[in-house]
Simulated scan of single mutants.
Amino acid sequence: MSSMPPCDAPDAPGSLRDRLRQLYHGRSPASLRFQLATTVIDIVIIAFFIATPLIRDRPAFLWIDYTVAAILAAEIVTRMLAASNIPRLLRQPTMLLDLVILATLLVPSMLENLGFLRILRLWTLSQRGVIWQQWRRTRFRDREDAARAVINLTTFLFVVTGFIYSFFFTGRPGIEGYVDAFYFTVTTMTTTGFGDITLPGTAGKLTSIAVMIVGISLFVRLAQAIFRPAKVSYPCPRCGLQRHEPDAVHCKACGQILCIPDPN
């Protein structure tokens, strides 16, 4: 009796890895649907991270926390299976961050003060190429820089809010303490400084200085992205210049004829 060829085995490890690679990195309709579905799941998880300080005392919190941990662990495992070089994947900042986030989900009582790092997953989400590939097909494609700047500013805002809430407002549980931390972060980032809420001690002053410096830089970056002439991402086939005017016919660096797709 002839045996089934190895390539026809439905559970062959190689076929599973190839399928996962195609789903994570492919451009077929099925791959894009998979990547968009994982993006939607990530957005829901990020919403949970943002709301964590408000629902931490709820009876169902630990159930949700461990469910999110299971989803994140499954995603990490599938990414490792889809990777061609696992050691290199584990050295990437996004993977290291996800491992830290997973640890805070598995032992929330011990790593509670590091919970604010979970919001950085919003930044890792913004690094996915599939999001910007779909964005460039819309009529807002020339506002990609502004969208990236908004994501960076939003990520910084909520990360700092979580940090300040964890280390300076632990005595004000629930929504009151979180709103105070959020209010302080916004007034400090905008350098409004009403003075009704301040952080105590030298550590508080240094934190305020860091928030002001970084916050102003992000606001300036956002203003530049909004008000400077809009450009789209389209690499020149000759010189590799990445950014061009939406209606450009020739590359301004080398004169190469461009064929920038028009989503309209």
Rank of each mutant, 00 (worst) to 15 (best):
Ser84His: 13
Leu105Asn: 03
Leu117Ala: 05
Arg118Tyr: 03
Phe49Leu: 12
Trp123Asn: 08
Ala83Met: 01
Val44Ala: 07
Ile45Thr: 06
Ile46Thr: 11
Leu81Phe: 06
Ala60Arg: 07
Leu106Thr: 02
Leu81His: 03
Leu120Lys: 00
Met110Glu: 15
Thr78Tyr: 09
Ile119Gln: 07
Phe48Pro: 10
Val44Glu: 13
Thr94Arg: 15
Ile86His: 10
Ala73Gly: 11
Tyr66Lys: 09
Ile43Trp: 07
Gln92Arg: 12
Phe49Trp: 08
Gly129Val: 00
Thr104Asn: 05
Gly115Arg: 10
Pro59Ser: 04
Arg128Gly: 07
Asp57Tyr: 11
Trp63Gln: 15
Ala82Ser: 02
Leu122Met: 09
Trp63Asp: 15
Ile43Asn: 11
Ala69Tyr: 01
Leu122Asp: 03
Arg79Val: 11
Ile101His: 08
Phe116Met: 01
Ala74Glu: 08
Arg79His: 12
Phe61Arg: 04
Leu54Glu: 08
Leu96Asp: 13
Ala60Asp: 13
Tyr66Asn: 06
Val100Glu: 02
Ala70Val: 11
Leu120Thr: 01
Thr94Pro: 10
Leu54Pro: 03
Ser109Glu: 12
Pro108Ile: 04
Gly115Trp: 06
Glu75Gln: 13
Phe116Ser: 02
Ile119Lys: 07
Ala51Pro: 04
Leu111Trp: 11
Ile101Cys: 07
Pro53Lys: 05
Ser84Leu: 04
Asp57Met: 14
Arg91Ser: 14
Asp57Pro: 05
Leu114Met: 06
Ser126Thr: 09
Val68Ser: 01
Gly129Arg: 10
Leu102Phe: 02
Asn85Ile: 09
Leu102Met: 00
Thr67Asn: 09
Ile71Asn: 08
Leu72Cys: 07
Ala70Trp: 02
Gly115Ile: 04
Trp63Arg: 13
Pro53Phe: 06
Leu120Phe: 02
Ile55Gln: 08
Ala74Val: 09
Leu89Arg: 10
Thr104Trp: 07
Leu54Asn: 03
Leu106Pro: 06
Leu90Asn: 14
Ile76Phe: 08
Ala47Asp: 02
Leu125Ala: 10
Leu99Met: 10
Leu102Val: 00
Leu125Gln: 03
Asn85Met: 05
Arg121Leu: 11
Ile71Arg: 04
Pro93Ser: 07
Ser109Arg: 15
Ile46Arg: 03
Ala103Gln: 05
Phe61Trp: 14
Thr94Glu: 13
Ile76Met: 15
Ala83Trp: 10
Arg79Glu: 11
Leu105Lys: 04
Trp123Ile: 05
Thr52Trp: 07
Ala47Ser: 02
Phe116Ile: 10
Phe49Gly: 03
Gly129His: 06
Thr104Phe: 00
Ile76Arg: 10
Ile119Ala: 05
Leu125Trp: 07
Val107Tyr: 12
Glu75Lys: 08
Pro59Phe: 06
Met80Gly: 04
Ala74Asn: 11
Thr52Asn: 15
Ile76Thr: 04
Leu90Glu: 11
